[in-house]
Amino acid sequence: MTCGSADNFVYVWDVATKRILYKLPGHSGSVNEVDFHPTQPIIGSCANDKSIYLGEIRATV
């Protein structure tokens, strides 16, 4: 699962262990929404800095 944050990071958690897997920098404004790609290990995040990032993460199990 994932969530945006007002501290400009994108957070990705492992639901089973409750650990933060990724804390991704890059945005320069509050991250409003993060979405997972339906088939590939890609996350898309959008923020108050008017930009959208598509980022590749490691392949899931």
């Binding site: 699962m1 994932t2 969530c3 509050s30 929404e33 997972f36 790609h37 108050n48």
Partner: peptide, 11 residues
């Protein structure tokens, strides 16, 4: 800012 920040599940 009190923005409505969303959350999502991986698919």
């Amino acid at each position: 800012e009190r923005g409505l920040i969303k959350c999502n599940w991986s698919k």
